[in-house]
Design a protein around this nucleic acid. Structure first.
Lengths: 245, 245
DNA sequence: CGACTAATTGATTTGCTTCAAATATCGTGG
DNA sequence: CCACGATATTTGAAGCAAATCAATTAGTCG
């Protein structure tokens, strides 16, 4: 079911997207079409060209977002100037919502890594949706819970494991969430730099480059400029689990 | 307002505790006394002698807990056998609840580090409480959100900072949450080993021992067997922020 | 007092960052 | 279409922080 909607006032051009994508999201899964229509009507759809910053770290969290198409990365800048890529957002995923619902500042930047389409809501709109449809509130809790447990699991790994293992884990996660099967393996379906990978795994681009080169050599991965293919997921998984491949 | 209640069937001896402690918790803050009584009535109070394991990693999460007195640590064991101390629980804090409400396995062990008292609920009891008092559900969401943002903030720090800095951060957090002022500084009010600290900061007991010795030397801390006093919180904070003190 | 747990301290090794420079790839405008 | 600047990646060498290895010492408890 494809619908067209008008974006925020400033943009005249209607943007086409598949409303089913929203149903893939944690927050709106399982709602019937009618309610979903209301959810869409309460928000605004807009295009994000690659590089667009959706919101900035430190800004008051006054909007909640859901990605409809493309990829957005969530990047945190630390006091020492270093950056960490906290997560990559894909279609159907929410971002900024936790901060918004808690009246907190956004804890990180959100930047589109490819041309994308998102739908966003103001806090009052979000609250009203939850008031009218309590199941949305429950689902948002569940979503936060899932992420909490996921993060908690990753905490331990991050500090205690070697770089190679952390990189393997990062690649696996990326593969599961953004993998597109090709004849030659599973390709990460958006451009990602060594630097990005380093900021996810907590390392440097140099070490990532070397590690990736070694993995390429062994046929586990294939990498090029801003492109990574996982050729041998089993081996990668083995490496992530045990630290030896 | 102190009340006495009967614990679970097996225990005859009533256990005294201050119901106000529950009001300090994220989940039950701001409820009026009557409702709070219902919350207490729906659960069971029990003593935990030091070393008692409340629940085990991997067990189905069928209970939610709130600590009334003492300290409980949440410890995760990784595939490689290594352990991470995820958090220390103090009076008024909930644990196991996220897993329980999401029908997931407990992601870690919960172990009493000193003689303690807790109140716990079954899943049905928790759900019923939330159904009858929706604000409890909202608060549990908010609590999960807070922890989520907190964890996310710590993620970046963990991998990119030096051990000394991570240890300083860990000490600061412990001080804020479990600090008891003494004439000589602020003492962590429960026994904690170098090993525990290492598992929190992602290091080894050897390095922690050396680091702590150095901090003691500089007058920032004072440490003994299973005891730590922060003598100069400012200096410690400085070290945590900038990496140099 | 003896058995156990916790902590210290030295020596060695190593994984990874840091420093430094070269090379490759892409987009773009002349 | 090709040259040029910007971005991304590779690769070598050196240095270092922290883990590991290896004993020893200090508290604590029954």
């Amino acid at each position: 079911m494809a619908v067209t909607l008008v974006g925020p006032p400033k943009r005249a051009m209607p943007i086409a997207f598949d409303i089913e994508i929203l149903r893939r999201s944690e927050m709106f899964a399982g709602l019937d079409a009618e309610i979903l229509q209301g959810v869409v009507a309460a928000g605004s759809v807009r295009r994000l060209s690659a590089g667009t910053r959706v919101f900035a770290q430190g800004d008051p969290g006054v909007t909640g977002h859901s990605l409809l198409e493309g990829r957005v990365k969530i990047v945190q800048t630390r006091a020492d100037g270093g950056q960490s890529v906290l997560r990559f957002i894909g279609p159907g995923e929410m971002y900024g919502t936790v901060a918004a619902l808690m009246n907190q500042a956004f804890p990180a930047d959100a930047v589109a890594v490819v041309d994308s389409v998102e739908i966003w809501w103001t806090i009052p709109a979000l609250r009203q949706l939850i008031r009218h449809h309590p199941e949305i509130g429950l689902r948002s809790t569940a979503a936060a819970g899932t992420r909490l447990m996921d993060l908690q699991g990753r905490m331990g790994e991050l500090t205690n494991e070697r770089v190679e293992q952390r990189i393997a884990r990062t690649l696996l996660r990326l593969m599961e969430k953004a993998g597109r099967p090709t004849g030659d393996g599973i390709e990460i379906d958006f451009p990602i730099t060594r630097q990005d990978l380093a900021e996810m795994a907590g390392s440097t681009l140099h070490t990532v480059s070397r590690t990736l080169a070694a993995l390429d050599q062994r046929g586990v991965t294939g990498s090029a400029r801003r492109r990574i293919i996982v050729r041998d997921p089993r081996a990668l998984s083995q490496l992530a689990q045990t630290g030896v491949g």
